[in-house]
């Protein structure tokens, strides 16, 4: 099996879709000659030309909005919002337009639009270049939400997002772009709404997203030394959510920790905790622990940034709290 970085895996999915299907095209800021601020779209302009790899003005409303219009007219646009912080500028188009056209029209239109974006802390970007806002979008009927954590997943999920007939907000994590991983020779589409069990265990389930999947796996290895067997599950798609896999895991382990980089309050972990306690109330042996950032805009100085965002140790401490209850 070939090895790709997470960045290359995203690019591979885009290239293959662009090659296969002329309705697919890309729009975004600095994605053409520069190859995107994260270098994800490097080389695509040369292969596919400026009509399909379109640099845009700094106009997030128009980027998402024109993507919506083109999608309704039968194209499969993939738009890039450079940082997920900037998604806030396009919220009206995403929430009122993309998400609602299908219902408002009584099923007459579909909006096969993919909105790629990225974020994530750990490199002192300050408060406006690293937020993790995925939970906002899980609250909006009509959208689908993906957050991939490995090269294999990001490639297979992006392909499925592009070919889904609904608007998909597709989150990538900045610190994962250099991460290497094996991918199948042929692109295997990964269906939206299917979780991945990264590691089996019997004592506690950690449901983690994005960077925290990797922190959870590290924490699980450390916990194992203390004789704690940790299962790590990545939902991969936050909306729709694979409740079945997650609930089954917790019914097996009887304990659960949720982990994401976004702030804890109102984060996706709250939704997970609600789903799990309702479906597996009688199986739980401890309160569900939530790991995430402390409730503050991200400060600049590295020591403060590291203090705010969750680390491996925070996941490990949460794991220990849940097993201590039994």
């Amino acid at each position: 099996m070939p090895e790709l970085t997470y960045r290359e895996a995203v690019r591979d999915a885009l290239s293959r879709a662009l090659r296969e299907d002329e309705t697919v095209f890309l729009m975004g800021e600095d994605i053409a000659e520069m190859g995107g601020s994260m270098a994800v779209t490097q080389g695509l302009l040369d292969e596919f030309g400026p009509k399909r790899i379109r640099n845009t003005p700094i106009s997030e409303m128009a980027i998402v909005g024109s993507g919506i219009g083109a999608a309704i007219q039968g194209m499969r646009p993939v738009v890039e919002i450079m940082y997920e912080d900037f998604l806030t500028l396009s919220m009206e188009q995403l929430v009122n337009q993309a998400a609602k056209h299908r219902t408002m029209s009584g099923g007459q239109v579909k909006v096969p639009l993919t909105i790629r974006t990225q974020g994530g802390a750990g490199w002192s970007p300050g408060a406006q270049h690293a937020q993790q806002l995925e939970s906002w979008f899980v609250h909006v009927p009509g959208l689908k939400v993906v957050f991939a954590s490995t090269p294999e997943d990001v490639r297979g999920l992006l392909w499925s997002a592009i070919y889904d007939d609904n608007p998909v907000v597709f989150f990538e994590h900045r610190t994962l772009y250099p991460l290497k991983g094996e991918v199948p020779d042929e692109l295997e589409p990964i269906p939206l709404g299917k979780a991945r069990v990264h590691r089996e265990g019997t004592d506690v389930t950690v449901v983690a997203t994005g960077r925290l999947v990797h922190d959870a796996l590290t924490a699980a290895e450390q916990a194992e030394k203390d004789g704690i067997s940790v299962e790590v599950v990545d939902p991969r798609t936050l909306l729709p959510l694979d409740e079945e896999t997650i609930v089954a895991s917790v019914k097996k382990t009887n304990r659960c920790v949720t982990a994401h980089e976004a702030v804890v309050r109102g984060g996706f972990g709250a939704e997970l905790a609600a789903v799990i306690q309702h479906a597996a109330f009688d199986w739980l042996d401890a309160p569900i622990e939530r790991v995430g950032s402390k409730f503050a805009p991200l400060p600049f100085a590295p020591v403060m940034e590291q203090y705010v965002i969750p680390q491996v140790e925070d996941v490990l401490a949460a794991i220990r709290r849940t097993v201590a209850r039994a």
Partner: peptide, 16 residues
Amino acid sequence: AGGIPGIVGAALAFQM
């Protein structure tokens, strides 16, 4: 003004 950007995209699809 919510419907205006979508029209740009529709026109873009026709142009492409």
